[in-house]
Amino acid sequence: MTTVASAPPTGLEKRSTPPPSKRRGIVGPIIKYALAIFFLIVVLMPAYVLVVTSFKAGNEIGVTGQWNLPSQWTVSSWGKAWDALQPAFLRTFQLAIPVALISSLVGAANGFVLSRWRFPGADVVFTLILFGMFIPYQAVMIPLREIVTSINIQPGIPTLILVHCIYGIPICTLIFRNYYATTVPEDLIEASRMDGAGLLRTFGWIILPISIPGFVVTIIWQFTSAWNDYLFAIFLSNTRNGPITIALNALAGAQSPDYAASMAGALITSLPTLVVYILLGRWFIGGLMAGSVKS
């Protein structure tokens, strides 16, 4: 059960020596590459449609010929989409960045306690915390909406920051707990304790400095999930004060939707998370792995 989780964020990159293959035929590799490339095309196909359509002029968009390249490339739809999404785009940064930072800090502290400064019943507590990341959020949404209305927090982004931070605790705790469990030797803590260092000194001086990889993973994870969230956004914000998923849905769901602008909007919406994915891919994957499999 521990195989995946205990693999550090780089678990995927490590390439074991190629598996032994006795018969080096020609048919096998051909099938292998044919399949790999076929699926490559299938996976990229929606992306192709998005890009191509977003550069088409209005009159060129119809059900026929939608697979063709634009006869005339134009960025007018991008301009239109940007105008519609720009305020929400900036707001989403104001949402996702604080969420990523706060959740990570909280997760690091929790993860440390649960892995290396344990108390009786820590496992049960940890399991209870974990359950929080699997619940369908509909099951808390009705009272949640009442609570955030009654505590006088600003609707929109501030509310969403609060909510994402709270419901991000389980996953961030999990990531850090697994991270510390595999990277921080028990002896290190023992040595620190012997020196008479308390919990906070140990955490602050010994643990935090070696936590950067864990932080990168949680920050990326929380940034991405806050950025891509639609459920909390639709319940707790609106087109005036909500994040980009709400704005995109309004743009693409309009009566006579402008397909070129919708597609450009979908690309604009996805850009930040895609950039994160491409630049920090291995850390991104690390978050995915940790986020899925508990040790």
Binding site: P87, L90, R91, Q94, L95, I97, P98, L101, I102, L105, V106, Q154, G156, I157, P158, I161, N241
Partner: peptide, 16 residues
């Protein structure tokens, strides 16, 4: 943490 949160929140409110 609270300081960062407050700052960013204030920023969010200011423009929202």
């Amino acid at each position: 943490a609270v300081g960062i949160a407050a700052l960013l929140t204030a920023g969010a409110c200011g423009s929202g």
